[in-house]
């Protein structure tokens, strides 16, 4: 059942990226181009919709001892703010701004986004791999 839920959640996530047009980097760059004179606020509406639904989910989760299909609920969010967090977010933001793709929309475009998306994904996985290796002892 957990595996079916994971597949279904992935399908819904991908559909959400298509419906919202966040799968299209041009739309994302339109939002990030805040001072270009033709600001496209769509991404803000996507975030509002997603965050509101998820806030309800966290409220429900806080009243449950465990997830429906077993295991543990995620622990309390860490409050550690350090250089890794802010530096990592800044590096991620730079790459996001250069192309208009972040990990979700990039992977969603794997089969429908042509060569450019595939090149981006390959580079992204390389970057993740380098970080994984730097992290492990």
């Amino acid at each position: 059942m957990r595996k079916l839920v994971a597949l279904l959640a992935g399908l819904i996530f991908g559909l959400g990226l298509v419906v919202s047009d966040m799968i299209n980097p041009a739309r994302v760059l339109g939002f990030l181009d805040l001072f270009g004179g033709a600001w496209d606020p769509t991404l803000a509406f996507v975030m509002i919709g997603a965050v509101l639904v998820m806030a309800v989910a966290w409220a429900i989760a806080s009243k449950r001892d465990e997830p429906v299909f077993g295991g543990d609920m995620p622990g309390t969010a860490s409050s550690l703010v350090d250089g890794r967090l802010i530096g990592g977010a800044a590096i991620f933001g730079l790459g996001w701004g250069l192309v208009g793709l972040c990990p979700g929309p990039a992977l969603a475009g794997l089969l429908v986004g042509g060569t450019s998306v595939c090149v981006f994904i390959a580079a992204m996985i390389l970057g993740m791999g380098v970080q994984n290796m730097a992290r492990s002892p």
Binding site: M1, R2, V5, A6, L8, A9, G10, I12, F13, L15, G16, L17, V18, V19, S20, D21, M22, D40, P41, T42, L43, A44, F45, V46, M47, I48, G49, A50, V51, L52, V53, M54, V56, A57, W58, I60, A61, R64, E66, P67, V68, F69, G70, G71, D72, M73, P74
Partner: peptide
């Protein structure tokens, strides 16, 4: 665009909610 953005965002939220409440992920 705003309404489709909101609808797509709700779908993304539902996906994340499903994964959290059903699987704890």
């Amino acid at each position: 665009n705003a309404l489709f953005g909101l609808a797509g965002g709700i779908l993304i939220g539902l996906s994340a909610a499903l994964l959290l409440l059903a699987n704890g992920r």
